[in-house]
Design a protein around this nucleic acid. Structure first.
Lengths: 257, 257
DNA sequence: CCGATCCTTCCGGTCAGTGGAAGAGGTGTC
DNA sequence: GACACCTCTTCCACTGACCGGAAGGATCGG
């Protein structure tokens, strides 16, 4: 799985961007040659563009000379309206929820065919969890993902069902079965997963409904569901309603679903 | 205060970047003409470049046609090593601290002459606080700022002292007085501010010391300090030591101070 | 209806960007 | 010490991608 040699974009901006795009969750430090390869550019060209990006602060060089994402991009990223209102509003509720459950708490929205984690809140002793803020996980294997999918258009559902990757032995990979689960989620008002994304981790999630639209999903990850499920769902719903209420008041409707 | 018509960078990448740079905390939504002006570019040129940036996802267009920072930049920003290890490690401790104090909790590092807020944790009922994650506040008027300044090089201190802007009637603007306070901070091991940044908000902050270097500052904002100050400082120090301990283990030394 | 303002598209000239080639620095091998 | 091999950096002449004035839409308000 060496290089996703992207289409060698002919425009300059495109090329510069393809260099930046070479970074991802698993590639936070890249060398010149790696970048050139991944962006599908000749080394000297990459070098020149990178120099510019570094000068501007989009990228930075670590002590070893490798390239990393720079502080300026981080700054700018924080300005993104990516549900910024949502994130700000939700923060205290995530918190309450953590206080009530001591489970890892997640806030996610759907972005294309993945669940995009807007915020995460984990304690010291939480179950090992794969997600980090800004990361994406598949819709079919996570609690928040199922909630989001359950309230998506038929077209999205079809696309998602078309590629159900197996992650653990318990991942649901049969379209029919998942469809029934989604129906269940809509009926129950919450979603459940049991070790479908990572072993030893179960999750519960509920939708956050504002102006009659599902704007996000709120979920928690716990080692097991045993008896406490009812209580946890109740806590989730309280938090979700709180978020929705805060969203409804004093917030402009610039959603970006 | 219309346009900071930046030097009309001659390179294409530079121009594209100058468009992105036109966004800041106070300008999260910009129209084509605004962008063109702020970036110092002709409208058609700006238009073309913007189209590319939008297609790529660096920017996005809101329902009204204005431009905003796109989701992809947010993503990428989250990958920035801007103290990412620090942020991840600190998160649970910030939490504990909130649980113990129910005050707004801040984690900040020094970036040039400002305090850069890496993380913030606020409850429902917290004091009104200006900071948001990713924002910068002056070093001389905040608790975390004073801590960071107290442990900075003489050169930085001098530059900071050279421009002590007044924010509230209580902001310390006399260099001599601030110097004495910094001395006090080093001696006591914590910093105090009383309504120096915003009225009705006092703050306490302590340094996070890892490998004998001050790598960050941890602070809380409360309505008043009255009697509980000793307890609060103790809680802060516990958290700071916890973070430092977690940092010391299992983390590589790619600091970016 | 007409003028003002902002957004979008077009297209030929030109100059910035391109990338092969060569040099510099570093590291491992015999 | 010399060689092979690697990645990074600089150079520079050619060329085709970008530039931006001009013109055409779209929208709004009077």
């Amino acid at each position: 799985m060496a290089g996703n040699v992207s289409s060698p974009s002919t425009t300059v901006t495109g090329r510069a961007l393809s260099l930046v795009a070479a970074f991802d969750e698993d590639h936070r430090r890249l060398t010149l040659t790696e970048l050139a390869t991944r962006a599908g550019l000749p080394v000297p060209t990459a070098h020149r563009l990178l120099a510019e990006l570094v000068e501007w602060g989009a990228l930075a060089r670590d002590p070893r000379g490798s390239y990393v994402i720079g502080r300026r991009l981080w700054d700018l990223g924080m300005l993104a309206p990516v549900q910024r209102g949502l994130r700000d509003v939700a923060s205290p509720y995530l918190h309450d929820l953590y206080g009530a459950t001591h489970a890892t708490v997640h806030l996610a929205v759907r972005d294309d065919l993945s669940a995009l984690y807007l915020d995460r809140l984990a304690g010291h002793t939480s179950v090992p969890v794969v997600s980090t803020v800004g990361s994406r996980l598949p819709l079919h294997a996570t609690g928040v993902g199922k909630v989001l999918l359950a309230h998506s258009s038929e077209q999205v559902v079809q696309e998602a069902l078309a590629r159900l990757e197996r992650v653990t032995p318990y991942t649901v990979t049969q379209p029919g079965r998942l469809r029934r689960q989604l129906e269940q989620v809509r009926h129950d008002g919450y979603a459940v997963t049991r070790e479908e994304m990572s072993l030893g981790a179960c999750s519960l999630a509920v939708p956050v409904v504002s102006r009659e639209r599902v704007v996000a999903a709120l979920g928690i990850v716990v080692p097991s569901l045993e008896s406490s499920q009812v209580r946890l769902v109740a806590a989730l719903q309280v938090a979700a309603r709180g978020i929705a209420r805060s969203l409804g008041s004093a917030d402009d409707p610039r959603a970006t679903p």
